[in-house]
Computed example of a mutant assay.
Amino acid sequence: MILFEEPITDIKDLIPQKFPFVMVDTLLGFSETNLISSFKILETNIFFNNHVFSEPGLIENMAQTVALHTGYDYFLRGETAPTGYIGSIKKMELYKLPELHDVIQTEAHILQEFMGVTLVEINVFNVEKVKIASSLMKTVIAS
């Protein structure tokens, strides 16, 4: 895993999602099978409700971390990031919801990739490096 000396904050062309539906804001590290993103929870976020970043927001953050991996990989090859979607969530564990101004780090580890379907293990951590959520997710590149 290569951790960038200078994190990449201009990710708008690396993922297909657009404001206000962007749930990742920084690319911290990348390898062929791994990616680390971060995201600061703001009051203006559409998934911020009752003083916390909600479960659907965390799921979308996980999926967009996978999309960021795909998008950065395509960027390195000089290609446009593809659109994709969540195919399934096999396992989701939630330990704590992030609160206002928390910065979460999401780590995606690609377990298997075949014909546009990616099986990914994803873990989300708070700034103290305590795991707050995890999932096993399949994402699919739209054809």
Rank of each mutant, 00 (worst) to 15 (best):
L136Q: 10
P82W: 03
A133M: 02
N50R: 06
P7N: 03
L76V: 02
V117G: 00
I110K: 04
D73Y: 15
K138L: 09
E6I: 12
N34C: 09
F114E: 13
G29K: 05
L68P: 09
V124A: 10
M115Y: 06
S134C: 08
N49F: 12
K90P: 07
E55S: 06
I11L: 00
P56Y: 00
A142L: 14
A81G: 10
N50F: 09
E113Q: 13
V22T: 14
Y85Q: 08
K90H: 15
I132A: 05
L136N: 03
T80S: 15
V130P: 01
G78T: 12
V130Y: 06
E113M: 08
D13M: 01
K40P: 02
I122D: 09
F19I: 12
Q64N: 06
F75E: 08
F30Q: 11
L76I: 08
E43I: 05
V130D: 14
F4N: 03
S135G: 13
N49W: 08
P98N: 05
G78I: 12
K96S: 13
L136C: 02
D73N: 14
T70Y: 04
Y72I: 05
P16T: 00
L28G: 05
N34T: 15
I2F: 10
E60Y: 00
Y74C: 10
I46C: 11
S88K: 14
Y95K: 14
L94M: 14
F30A: 13
Y74I: 00
L14D: 01
V140F: 13
T9I: 06
A67M: 08
H101K: 12
H109G: 07
H51L: 03
I36S: 01
T106S: 05
T65W: 07
E32V: 04
K131C: 03
L94C: 05
G71P: 10
T80Q: 15
K18H: 07
E55K: 08
T83F: 15
G116E: 02
T83L: 15
L3E: 15
L35K: 07
V124Y: 04
I11N: 01
Y72K: 07
F48R: 07
K131T: 04
E121T: 01
I46D: 05
Q17D: 08
T83S: 15
A133P: 06
P7S: 03
I122K: 08
N123F: 07
P98I: 00
I36C: 08
I41G: 06
N49M: 09
M62K: 03
I2R: 14
N49S: 14
I132H: 05
T106G: 02
T44Y: 03
D102R: 06
H109C: 09
E79L: 15
E55N: 04
M62N: 04
E128D: 15
F39A: 02
E107N: 07
E99C: 01
E107T: 09
F19T: 14
H109N: 11
P98Y: 01
E113A: 13
I46F: 06
T83K: 13
V127Y: 07
E6D: 10
V66Y: 03
F30R: 10
I59S: 00
V124F: 03
Q105E: 12
L100F: 07
Y95T: 08
A133E: 04
E93V: 11
D73Q: 14
V22P: 09
M115W: 00
K90Y: 13
M115G: 00
D10T: 07
E32C: 02
V117A: 02
N49L: 13
T83G: 11
L94E: 03
M62C: 12
T106L: 01
